[in-house]
């Protein structure tokens, strides 16, 4: 690619839509910005700094009341300065307890952003984490979960780092448009500034939406503590049960190498490490 063209695209940037939801403080239960969604917005802001000219659109579907407005404004307070693109956010207004998927799909299909960033799961309601998948299925876009960082965007292909368990990372290349979901592995969100949050505006568009009748039929209750699993010893004799309860945990007859040269010992260890596939 020619350098000028590359520069042009760099200037152009891409359209990013960040889906935000209203969080719930784990102790007080008050409305706040959702942890994962804030991380998603942080990621988008970091990308905008890398790729000037990107436009960030913050989108929320839900009702508008006093509590939720405070929570939503704290997302808007995350970027300061003129031209950062967070002076306003789009609010698809719908009554409480209605299905958010279809309005979101319609809005995304109409505005067609190149990248949609969302948290992995909501902190209120069902919180099943199905929404990003539902959007991907409806729109037919590829989806990548558990994102750690965005490395670069060029030629309509984004290179990402996906977080794996045990602190590992995987590099992926995804063709745009795409949906990416963010969880605890992404960089922590910055503080929200009060002033810009107050000054920001909402562009509200009411939507016709169906009530989520299935959710209404379910029984919701505060989470019970899960019973701790007991160590069950199935044995006929009291002696075996006592031995199992009183003795130290022992390996199931490990291999012990005595009187070996260091090389032989190292060989055996090397074989085990290879078998377990931990050597990279």
């Amino acid at each position: 690619m020619q350098p000028e063209q590359q520069q042009k695209q760099q200037k152009q940037g891409i359209d990013v839509t960040v889906l935000v939801s209203i969080g719930r403080h784990p102790i007080t239960g008050r409305a706040r910005r959702a942890e994962q969604d804030a991380r998603g917005l942080e990621l988008a802001l970091a990308m905008e700094a890398e790729l000037p000219g990107s436009r960030i659109n913050v989108l929320h579907a839900g009702s508008q009341d006093v509590d939720s407005e405070v929570a939503l404004r704290s997302y808007l307070g995350m970027a300061t300065g003129v031209g950062m693109g967070l002076e306003s956010m789009t609010l698809l207004e719908q009554p409480d307890g209605s299905d958010a998927i279809l309005p979101l799909v319609e809005h995304l299909a109409a505005t067609s952003p190149q990248l949609v960033i969302t948290g992995a799961r909501a902190e209120r309601g069902e919180g099943s984490g199905l929404l990003p998948y539902a959007l991907a299925e409806h729109l037919g876009w590829p989806l990548v979960n558990s994102l750690a960082s965005i490395e670069k965007v060029e030629n309509g292909v984004v290179t990402l780092l996906q977080a794996l368990p045990r602190g590992q990372r995987r590099r992926l290349k995804v063709r745009l448009p795409a949906i990416i979901s963010v969880d605890e592995a992404a960089p922590a969100a910055r503080q929200s500034a009060f002033g810009p949050a107050r000054r920001a505006t909402f562009s509200v568009s009411p939507t016709a939406s169906d009530a989520d009748s299935e959710l209404a039929q379910w029984h919701l209750s505060p989470a019970r503590k899960r019973p701790k699993r007991l160590k069950i010893i199935k044995s006929a004799s009291a002696r075996d049960r006592f031995k199992a309860a009183a003795s130290k945990a022992e390996g199931k007859g490990g291999q012990v190498l005595t009187d070996v040269t260091p090389e032989q010992g190292a060989e055996a260890i090397y074989k085990l490490l290879k078998e377990e596939d931990v050597l990279r």
Binding site: R24, P26, E123, G127, W218, H219, S221
Partner: peptide
């Protein structure tokens, strides 16, 4: 019985 809302709810369905 399923956990919902970031582990703060039990949903029976």
């Amino acid at each position: 019985t399923a956990r919902g809302a970031a582990g703060s709810l039990d949903i029976q369905r």
